[in-house]
């Protein structure tokens, strides 16, 4: 089998777009978002949980792990995040990301997934009843 050369990775524009999506997500949800793209060492879910546990504030963090070669996608939410971002919402984001990945858009799938997760984790604005 002839080895296939690896691609060039994300373009500068794609990196900038993903960074921008993460910053926007953190602003909207007030939680930390981290995205790892690369090969998982061992079982993907266990590796994603180890990555999440190694973050600075795992209880307030969302980790998105994408293994492009294994076509594997993992999202891990911390304990504090889970209160605002239930697993059902995570599964919806994963479904959207899967369809975008299948269309060949790796960076676009990550951006859409992060945005969906942030919207789902957004806390409702408090309505002050003491205002006339």
């Amino acid at each position: 089998m002839v080895p296939v050369a690896a691609g060039d990775g994300f373009s500068p524009e794609q990196r900038r777009d993903i960074d921008r999506a993460i910053r926007a997500a953190e602003t909207v949800s007030r939680y930390e978002f981290s995205v790892y793209v690369g090969a998982a060492e061992g079982e993907p879910n266990a590796f994603a949980r180890r990555l999440h546990a190694a973050l600075v504030a795992p209880h307030r963090s969302v980790l998105v792990m994408v293994d492009p070669d294994a076509h594997s996608l993992e999202i891990v939410t911390g304990t504090a995040v889970r209160r605002d971002l239930p697993d059902e919402s995570v599964r919806l984001a994963i479904a959207t990301m899967q369809s975008t990945f299948e269309a060949g858009d790796l960076a676009g799938g990550i951006k859409r997934g992060v945005a969906l997760l942030a919207d789902a984790a957004r806390k409702p604005e408090t309505l002050h009843s003491d205002q006339p």
Binding site: A6, G7, S34, V37, A54, L63, P68, L106, G109
Partner: peptide, 30 residues
């Protein structure tokens, strides 16, 4: 400028967004 598409092989590359780069190595220390 076209960037990576999902059909292309990714290889051994690792990319972090919004996370510390040492987290991949730190994962082994958990």
């Amino acid at each position: 400028s076209q960037g990576q598409a999902t059909g292309e092989p990714w290889g051994d590359r690792r990319e972090w967004f919004g996370g510390p780069r040492q987290s991949v190595d730190a994962a082994d220390e958990v």
